[in-house]
Computed example of a mutant assay.
Amino acid sequence: MASSTSSTQSQSPLEEEGPFFSDFGITTSGGLYAKNNPFQRSGPTDAMERIALANDDLYMRVDLPGVPKEKSFYFLDSNNNNVFFGGLAPKQYQKEHDQEREYGGFHGLRCGCCKVTKLHATFTNGVLRMILSKTESKKNFCPTVPHKLVDPIGIASSHEVKPDYAVKNPFQTKGPIESFGAKKVKEGYYVRVDMPGVAEENVSVGVEDGRVFFSGKSRKESEHEESGRTYLGSFGPIDVDKLGKIKSDVKDGVLTMLIPQKGEE
């Protein structure tokens, strides 16, 4: 899937008229490069990636943006048939201007004669990476059922249908499903952009022609991944004459910015 340098503009989910997000990543066919994140420009798309390894192990990447390591979980059930995973992404800003997000899902075996014998997992910058190993049990025999790990299943959740740029993470069970958002606050504007996998040192924020531009790049964290991912977008227009110092922070794969406008009440 190739990306181009084309861009488009779309009104962001603000409570009132004002600055909006733009410079979405558009492919040569005119669609978004990554429907779950309009600012992604390269790398694997979707919130989940599965790769079958040569030794019949399974590699899984699951995006859980906003979830700190201490709020994440992953474990095998008592029968060693399923691995459960998820986490809680706390509010990033003041209580009245943000919402927490929750994630939960599981991945398991289709047959009854195999067991997951090993689960190796790492969690960095809002991304869970797992390698699942299995073995066939001699106690049970079910030749008619494939000895494979089934498709991941998200714990049931309910959300209204959203535009393409708000494709829901299949494992998200609570909170705003958009990968970006903006709020008019007392100090100016509070902006959130999901960049799962991106560390703080690989994010840039700057102002040009009355717009706040942001970009981020994640490196390839596993030998099983094809590549890292890149993100690029902008927010504006901003009155540069009233612009104070932008306060940006990157935590658990989420970029947040407080864009102060002098004289705002």
Rank of each mutant, 00 (worst) to 15 (best):
T117V: 15
S137I: 05
S133K: 13
L128R: 06
M1T: 04
G154I: 06
E15W: 04
P65Q: 07
I131S: 01
S78W: 08
G18A: 10
E226R: 12
P170Q: 02
N79E: 14
D63P: 05
G175S: 09
G244E: 04
V161N: 12
D249Q: 13
G108I: 12
E136W: 00
S234H: 04
K242R: 15
K71P: 01
T45Y: 02
L64A: 06
N36P: 04
K115L: 12
T5W: 05
K183I: 07
L255F: 06
L32Q: 04
E200Q: 14
V83G: 03
G154R: 09
V62I: 13
H97C: 02
G236M: 09
H107L: 11
A121F: 08
N140I: 11
V207P: 02
E265Y: 00
P44T: 11
E136A: 10
K245I: 04
G244M: 06
V161T: 15
A182F: 00
F21R: 04
F106Y: 13
A199F: 06
L132N: 07
E223I: 12
H97W: 14
S158K: 15
G43H: 09
T144Y: 01
E178R: 09
D151Y: 11
D194H: 11
K184R: 14
S78G: 11
F75H: 12
Q9R: 11
V250C: 06
E200H: 11
G31T: 10
H107P: 02
V198H: 07
A166N: 08
M48V: 15
V250T: 10
A2V: 09
N169I: 04
L109Q: 07
N202T: 15
P176E: 08
G86A: 06
F20I: 09
Y165G: 01
P19W: 08
V185Q: 02
V67C: 05
I259W: 00
R50Y: 03
V198Y: 05
H107A: 07
P170N: 12
G188V: 00
E49R: 11
Y93I: 07
G206K: 15
K220D: 08
P170L: 10
D46I: 03
K69N: 02
G104C: 14
H147N: 12
S12G: 14
F75Q: 07
Y93T: 11
F21S: 06
C114F: 05
T27E: 04
E264G: 00
E200N: 13
S234M: 01
G188Y: 01
S215F: 06
P196Q: 10
E100M: 13
K168H: 03
D46H: 09
G108L: 03
E265W: 00
G253H: 06
Y189S: 01
I153T: 14
V62R: 03
P38S: 12
K134S: 14
I238T: 08
S137V: 07
S204T: 13
D56W: 07
A2W: 03
D98G: 11
R129T: 08
